[in-house]
Design a protein around this nucleic acid. Sequence first.
DNA 1: GCGACCGGTTGAAACGTTTCAACGCCGTCG
DNA 2: CGACGGCGTTGAAACGTTTCAACCGGTCGC
Lengths: 357, 357
Amino acid sequence: MARTTIKDVSERAGVSVGTVSNVLNAPHRVAPDTRERVLQVVSELGYRPNRTARGLQARRTYLIGYLLPARELNVNTALDSFLHELVSTASPHGLEVVLFAPQPGQTELEGYRDLIRRGGVDGFVLSETNYDDPRIALLAGVGFPFVSFGRSLARDPFAWVDVDGATGIGDAVRHLLGAGHRRIALVAWPEGSESGDDRVAGYRRALTRAGVTPDPRLEVRCLNGVDQGKEAWRRLSLLDSPPTAVVAVQDQLAIGVLLEAQSMALQLGVDLAVTGFDDTPAGALLGLSSVRQPLRDVCRLLVEHLVHRIEDPWADPGHDLVRPELVIRSSSGADVINSPRPWARSELHRYRRRHRR
Amino acid sequence: MARTTIKDVSERAGVSVGTVSNVLNAPHRVAPDTRERVLQVVSELGYRPNRTARGLQARRTYLIGYLLPARELNVNTALDSFLHELVSTASPHGLEVVLFAPQPGQTELEGYRDLIRRGGVDGFVLSETNYDDPRIALLAGVGFPFVSFGRSLARDPFAWVDVDGATGIGDAVRHLLGAGHRRIALVAWPEGSESGDDRVAGYRRALTRAGVTPDPRLEVRCLNGVDQGKEAWRRLSLLDSPPTAVVAVQDQLAIGVLLEAQSMALQLGVDLAVTGFDDTPAGALLGLSSVRQPLRDVCRLLVEHLVHRIEDPWADPGHDLVRPELVIRSSSGADVINSPRPWARSELHRYRRRHRR
DNA sequence: GCGACCGGTTGAAACGTTTCAACGCCGTCG
DNA sequence: CGACGGCGTTGAAACGTTTCAACCGGTCGC
């Protein structure tokens, strides 16, 4: 029950506690034979310095805070893998990840502020950062170490890592262009989100560079969600000349498009190609091609930047933009899994005849 | 930069630090007017006691540890919601959740042991507990507070909370029986997992109680996974008289069954009813009926038990079994979403003719 | 032969709390 | 009027580290 302390070690090794501490933190200062003896006792007793005591003296906690984003507007569908990577990349730096949520009746910002005041963490990792995120103003304002997964238009310089969504979507577009598609639609979130607008820009740029003029009628805007994706495809399918491919800025939207198209008896990868973003398990299940965020790299960089901020809060904050990877599956024609259905096209025609005003 | 300490408060309020501490922790001991004055200063300065210092003296950390289960064998597909509920139920008790992973080259058990030695947490929450889990022997052995999500055959008594999988599966079976099904198959994991065996037992019991004799040929065993589910349905469909309903012990298996049945052009909810377990987003998307674990209740109970263990490690560990809820969707005939396909049956027959030896 | 220096070690202070024995004051009772 | 109690407050110790000035014994240089 009683934990073994540095004092136990020092007594047993016949040295002072200062010496034991030196053996552990500055071995070069202590004579080789003393060092050996102390290390021997340390391993016999299985001694590990107490984090709390060490933290009190060093004014550190060896913890980094991550506020769990509210469940409802959960765009970050990859929370699971994100946390995994974050925790395992933080670990070698002697850091652990503390999850927290605002107390009931507290705003998110108050949650951050409270944790700072209580001296609860050494720094924060933010995610789902958006334009002019108030958290950045708060943290940069008080000079508290943090790093953001996602860029932001903020006056203060700050450390961030982001996925190059524009290039990712561009890769999807180029993949579809390469497969012969020319009428490539976009299903995107409403204007005003950092990552959303970035992806839209990538779509337009890729088309333009390939000599295809982006057609505004092929750009549908809606909130995230499977149902919204279905609705989006319904609207696209009623156009004079419907698209042959759809690029969605998120898997859920893509899944909606895909399901709705299937229910119109369209053959995915043949009649219609679809791509998503985030490479979610649900999407993978349905054979959805998707842009995968390299979360391992992202987390490695996040932790590196954060460690720098903690160690030297005065240095210039750095940042990184990492390139995602397009995972090609059957939804964009990789290898067709379902058997062809010759009546698919006529189904689409029937649907359109019924619904066009 | 310099945080405000209890000393700042005491000086400004013209009292000793002891008094400030009493105001915060034992207000009845201090005179009302002093109390007011101190509280006034506390709120002016936004003072919050430093967790590290408080923890050092109390020999506590106010943190509970959760080891992120290895990604590969991730049965706990609801990690996201689980953590959400865990964090928000722990918060009112003044506890935060620390995630950790074994250092590279360390076993899981060493990860736990290390954290105990370093005095890193006040207690652990275990999940994915299995028969005779070595973590339970370790923690119960050294008398370290913990609570387990999942029962286990362990010699030592320990605190746990579990979902009554048997009853959950039983509910699914009764639902199908009520819809008129009699040949109800089971797709389950291989024998030897605590929760798996529990669910199998629930399946058999529900059938027996309803006067239907369980047919061993209708029980398929396979590892978790969508592909395994597909394979399971292929085997079931080749039986002399195939089942009209399938109960799976997990959503991924159910999804496999469902997808494979669809690819045979069976109409879900009409030709074949399917139920899963865990109510995953992917399942919900496909209209899969599923047994939902009441994670909020589970986490509330987990935290309560753990707090008791921490406060009074000598008391008898308690436990709770909570009943899950069956969510009925179209896969078991709730409201059929697809239009009927008259040729479905003949497709099945064609398939069977082709594949039976 | 003496001071300076150097490597190794020690002891004490400090980190920010809580706890608790001791103290001072005031009113009450004998 | 002195002893006693009770209430409110204080001061110091303790929690387990790290850090750092000081110390000690030995060696070197002059």
